[in-house]
Design a protein around this nucleic acid. Structure first.
Ligand code: SF4
Ligand code: SF4
Lengths: 137, 137
DNA sequence: TTTAATTACTACTCTAAGGTAGTATTAAAT
DNA sequence: ATTTAATACTACCTTAGAGTAGTAATTAAA
């Protein structure tokens, strides 16, 4: 699927955060070290997640990040949409104009099934629902 | 899915070519104009397709390109593999090490179904089979 | 034999994503 | 008050993909 690194990192960051005790703050340092994400790049992402209202930040010593929205209300699809990685309905897989069932491209019929399934999967995968799954972080 | 422009162009080029009369040569100029692909970029791709043996080129005046392989023996998956756009089995969707069912990432179980379907779809889509489909070129 | 039409080659430029560096700001601990 | 540990901001560097420019090589037509 070729998600951007930013999207990949964000999904892992949020999944990691939701597994920590609620109410406890999580620092960029902890995230960077445990998730193996370049510190400076991570803080850039965190600032964006704060701006968009997924998390909130407490500045200063003993500061850190915590969820603002509930993890059950943030989906993988939301993350992808935020960083422009979502599969857009109007986008033709072959890049010919915009997707239009009345004027199909050569791959349309074959692609459309996968496309719908992917969109559904991303839309239904809340951060909460994936946080328990898997062992790798 | 975010295919590279190179892959998108190539699929359209090959699908276009297979619809022309066999034995007739097709020039870069014709392809560029009819498919609306930048001429210089297109010739770069064509040279690559010649090198890899999908098509052959006849140089000089009245020259052009024609298939070397049969269109029924080239799949969309082959094209994606050529330009490094294929969905690699060993690649983790979240970019954590390599894909390993014994150590899953958070998205693994949800992603794997779409992944298998996509791979199958690309593998089974021959250029010949898609050339008839769709109206847009 | 010259010209025109073609592919092939080499070497750029442009852009966005990914990543890095340094500094400012904030606020608790000391 | 000072120090320390944290986030925020600004500016830059690096890389790969996309695209452009110019020229060389080839070959049929005129
Ligand atoms: S394939 Fe058809 S539907 Fe899918 S994008 Fe291209 S045109 Fe639209
Ligand atoms: S999701 Fe699981 S299977 Fe899919 S890639 Fe990540 S680890 Fe491998």
């Amino acid at each position: 699927m070729h998600l951007s690194n930013t999207s990949k990192y964000t999904i892992r960051i949020l999944a990691y955060m939701v597994k920590q005790k609620e109410s406890s703050l999580i620092s960029a340092k902890e995230l960077s070290e445990n998730l193996n994400i370049p510190y400076k790049f991570l803080t850039k992402i965190m600032t964006e997640l704060v701006k968009v209202g997924f998390i909130e930040s407490i500045r200063g010593r003993e500061g850190g990040y915590k969820f603002l929205k509930k993890a059950s209300e943030i989906t993988v699809g939301d993350v992808l949409a935020l960083f422009n990685d979502a599969i857009k309905n109007e986008e033709c897989i072959l890049g010919i104009d915009s997707c239009d069932v009345k004027e199909k491209c050569a791959l349309h019929d074959k692609w459309i099934k996968s496309k719908v399934q992917l969109q559904k999967m991303f839309r239904e995968s809340t951060i909460e629902s994936i946080a328990g799954e898997g062992t790798k972080i």
